[in-house]
Amino acid sequence: MYEASPLIPRNRAAHPVPYDPGYKTSVTRSPNLPLLSLDSTPSEETGPRFGHNMIGALDNNLILNWTKGEAPAVGERILVHGRVLDENGRAVPNTLIEAWQANAGGRYRHVKDSYFAPLDPNFGGCGRTLSDDEGYYQFLTIKPGAYPWPNRGNEWRPAHIHISVFGHAFGQRLISQIYFEGDPLIDRCPIAATVKDRGQLDQLVAPLDMAMAKPMDFLAYKFDIVLRGRRQTFFENRPEGM
């Protein structure tokens, strides 16, 4: 589906700064020179679409998907849910959302993670889903644990779930992290602190949502995601020279 209207230029003030000495790895991995800012073209306004036939029945259930439903993962059972919207407040339906995270002890199932908290034999740590026609999505998972990482002398990441969202245009592509309400490590985290606008950092913190918790089963956290929107095109296609 090709939607012809251009993307709203990205408000870079909504995002983290690329260079932040507090997050040491960014020092050598951030461009020195300014980005080249231009109107979007069809190359940015189109993007891949993924179908429901790709998604398995347990793909958004991280408690059960690693064992194919045979045994549940250990930890605090939570529902993470919300809507994918664009900057105009419109729902973004049928878009792929991927999530990955550490287990309840803060250990990732990745060949390069050597933290001595043990792996959970019943937890893989990745999931995916498509938003529905109203942009709504949900994952059932285990609340991840905090974990240490080599940055400054005694650095610990707050509990977080990584998310990747596609939208309908390659220019909407976004990867971010979900934090959890009340976590005291958020204010100590140099990665969270790369977002300089406090209101924007708050947008990454999922509130406890008792209305969606299931009694005697799981707690819930709500996390809405906002992607770039499209500009209205009242005056477009101006001839050369105007």
Partner: peptide, 11 residues
Amino acid sequence: TTLMETPSQTA
């Protein structure tokens, strides 16, 4: 009424 885009974080 426009919303702010969700801020990015490192992958």
